[in-house]
Amino acid sequence: MATLFRWPGNWDPFAGLRVMQRELERLSGRGGFGEGRNIGGGVYPPLNVYNGPTELVVECEVPGVKREDIDLSITGETLVVKGVKHPAGESDEEIRYQRCERGSGEFSRTVVLPDKVEPEGISASLVDGILTVRLPKSQAAMPKKINVK
């Protein structure tokens, strides 16, 4: 029997499974997106993922974390946000905590992106404690209009 169609070369047989895993993590209250650590209550850092027409946007709430303490990397469709959250008090001074809710320590979160992106075009900014990563979608992930002759 003749082959009617072939999967494209970059077809990922596990894409569907990953989506399912994400949904299961969400439902089971684990927060989803990999090995997030709890700092100051809840998986840290909290993040949002948006899917726009030409780009994906990932936002992280990291108040008090310095630019130089954040380490962002991407491998294929996997974005990793790593960093260190330092305690608020002046380190060289002896201080007495009355309340310590914010927490501190190393953090890491893995985001499996819903689309393929162009690694060269990624930009990130840190404003008012919110890290915004903009990831332009790759041509292959964008819809293309086909003219019928």
Binding site: R22, R26, G31, G32, F33, V43, P46, L47, N48, V49, Y50, N51, G52, P53, L56, V57, E59, E61, P114
Partner: peptide
């Protein structure tokens, strides 16, 4: 907000 063209894929905050 980023606008109507941006769909929320995941919301953590």
């Amino acid at each position: 907000s980023l606008g109507d063209q941006y769909a929320r894929t995941y919301t953590g905050f």
